[in-house]
Simulated assay, not measured.
Amino acid sequence: MASSAPRPSVVPQANLESFQTHLNSSKRILALVGAGLSASSGLPTFRGAGGLWRTHDATSLATPEAFSVNPGLVWQFYSYRRHMALKAKPNPAHYALAELARKKDGFITLSQNVDGLSPRAKHPEDSLKLIHGSLFDVKCSDFFCNYHESNNYTDPIVPALAIPTDDVDPTTTSALQARELDIADESIALPEIDHAHLPQCPECRRGLLRPGVVWFGEMLPKKVMEEITQWMSATDPIDLIMVIGTSAKVYPAAGYVDLARAKGAKVAIVNMDKNDVPASGLYNGDWLFEGDAAQILPEILKSVIGEVQVGEDAAAEGS
């Protein structure tokens, strides 16, 4: 893996030095991450999915009821999202957190993202808690079947879900302009897909597979939430919580900031919008790093992780 070139400083020196002094001595560290972590990877947001999906309400497709009524339509939406996520690549922020997890035993990342970019940056699994699941996990929709598969990067997952037209690289200027000008893919009609051509459960052979994400109206993953609770409730203090690319104003995310503070943590915010801070605000001694996480994280974590190395991701290696 080749090391990236040294970056010019994007953080005021006084803030950088005080943060790194605290980071270096911290034993238990928590990162709470949201969509802003993946901003530099060029992914459209959930509600901003491009092309023909502009005519659909994304939130209406992300429910168990929608899947029950029209699994073909729901799967086409998620196949598009999987396709776009696979065309994107983990950015230096993903690699920086993955390396911090390897260097600091008491570090965990709570991710609200489903884009699969943190696993593809080889973030250690035991310290990555996916609160909302992953586009690349699939599970059986049958109530009596417990089949679950992680890190399925097959694109398309079945031939019937092939994308009708191949979008350009989502990180390029032309792709961004296409989304901005509202000209991508909209003339392409969605095909009707027969139930038999959708992903089938290989275990029970009666249920359809579904994306392993948390839909509206569903509980957050029990095992993941129990692991987070166990980590948070340990008797040892928490030294630092980094809130990255998320406002953390909605629960349970907001609650983690409050819990970490109650256990002694200082808070570091990394966000594009300096006003987008947790509901509890900033306390004296906290840090606010305004800007792109892909630029800021490698710099502020450098005293522990060294230079960020960006290499082949897990999906590319498996293709």
Rank of each mutant, 00 (worst) to 15 (best):
A2V: 05
P6K: 11
S9A: 15
V10T: 02
N15H: 05
L16P: 00
E17H: 07
Q20R: 09
S25M: 09
S25D: 06
L30A: 03
A35N: 08
S40L: 14
G42A: 01
R47D: 12
L61D: 00
A62G: 05
A62K: 01
E65N: 02
E65F: 08
W75E: 04
W75R: 03
Y80P: 03
R81H: 11
R82F: 15
A85Q: 00
A85G: 02
A93W: 09
S111R: 04
A121Q: 06
E125N: 13
N151C: 10
T154N: 15
I157Q: 05
I157V: 13
A162M: 11
P164C: 11
T173M: 14
A178T: 01
R179A: 14
E186P: 01
H197E: 13
Q200T: 00
Q200M: 09
L208I: 01
L209P: 00
L209H: 00
F216W: 12
I228K: 07
W231I: 05
G245A: 12
Y251F: 11
V257G: 07
V257D: 04
L259R: 07
A260L: 10
A260F: 09
K263F: 14
K266S: 14
V270F: 12
M272T: 07
D273V: 04
D276R: 08
N284F: 14
N284A: 15
F289T: 01
E290W: 05
A293W: 07
L297Y: 05
L297V: 04
V304T: 08
E307A: 15
G311Q: 04
